[in-house]
Design a protein around this nucleic acid. Structure first.
Lengths: 208, 208
DNA sequence: CTTCAGAAAGCGAACATTCGCTCTATAATC
DNA sequence: GATTATAGAGCGAATGTTCGCTTTCTGAAG
């Protein structure tokens, strides 16, 4: 076939990524064979290798895409201006996580990438950079919460941001690994820890 | 050799598990070949298959062992009687995590198991059961904290336990994936979130 | 105390299978 | 007819596992 439109090329790439994502969610990165991916995409071997150099390149592309989605969502919510109360921002974040958990497999792919990052330096670098940035935004949120009197102002905001970020990651893991948690109660648990009475739960947010 | 002592058998098994753990930390479960493991253990192929039925059985044995260590440690600290303040218990837990991160690879293997659990039902069942139990103990801790007035008594302790457990998992992930966190500051961040002033940091604990 | 038959641990070449990937013929478009 | 994306048979390397042989030690017989 002769020249094909740019849009067509992008669509094909997306088609492969979608198919591979399904395969990876089903069997993991390394227990998925190229034949699995290619069959799921409804393509031929040769067609695949026109769009990706190797299996490794495919995995990295998917990891980058999914982690990038996570970052974009997190950044958007953490940098809202003016900053809502911390508990509300956390609630927003968990709501997005719930969506990404059920709709596409973004979050579940991310957990698999964490496992890869333990031993693969390239994944480790990707995660370290992007999650470091997200945590930085959580720190910025903490700082603003200090400025407007939500939190004690005389302490370093960095550890507060780390704790907030940790709570988010903990929610993801419990949803993915154990289940039996829901956003609303998790947020209420954080609220209790933060000393908020049960009556001042975060208000429902207009997003989504 | 004829009958070999029970101790010898157990030692050989442990020798294989130790070697495999090193390999898995270096290259992950599925990118480690049996030849890698066998060479690292200084054994022959045949000798290995005398102790484990398959590669899959080896991985599951290691996963079970490491997750079991995590459970034993967590249970011990979460069920201390009388229960120290929540922040102190968290501090104890993070201290153990730090030890397991640097000494052996228990925690790093656990993160890899999380990634497997996303798509492998057997891993998922293992994690779900054990982590569910740990979280249950965190809930019990929260309940006792309510009883002695540390936390609001008029709310469900389950979400509080989930949040505490989430903070722990978040610490693990940040240590393994991003770095740039240390136990002391993370705990201080939690303390700030919990409304504790900076002067009442948790006292050093006698354990360990 | 010596001998030796038997049992079990250890060994590693060989096996079938599966892997990621290449390569050339095909066919569709301009 | 020129161009080029697609197809898919097929390649070589690597994989997990098996299987028959060797080595090592036990324990009973003499």
């Amino acid at each position: 076939m002769p020249r094909v439109s740019e849009a067509h090329l992008a669509a094909r790439r997306e088609q492969i990524i979608d198919a591979a994502t399904r395969c990876f969610l089903r069997n993991g990165f390394h227990q998925t064979s190229m034949q699995d991916v290619i069959k799921e995409a409804g393509l031929s071997v040769g067609a695949f290798y026109r769009y990706f150099d190797s299996k490794s390149a495919l995995i990295k592309a998917i990891a980058g895409e999914k982690i990038g989605i996570v970052q974009a969502t997190a950044d958007h919510l953490l940098r809202q201006d003016p900053a809502p109360p911390v508990l509300v921002v956390i609630d927003d974040l968990l709501r997005q996580i719930d969506i990404n958990l059920t709709d596409d497999g973004t979050v579940r792919i991310a957990v698999q990438v964490w496992g890869e990052a333990v031993h693969d330096p390239e994944f480790a670098a990707l995660i370290s950079e992007i999650y470091g940035r997200i945590r930085g935004n959580a720190v910025a949120l903490a700082r603003r919460a200090q400025e407007n009197g939500q939190l004690a102002a005389d302490v370093d905001p960095v550890p507060i941001g780390a704790a907030i970020f940790g709570l988010i990651q903990g929610y993801i893991l419990q949803r993915v690994l154990i289940g039996e948690v829901d956003r609303e109660s998790y947020v209420s648990g954080i609220g209790t820890l933060m000393g908020a009475g049960p009556e001042d739960r975060p208000p429902r947010v207009t997003t989504g």
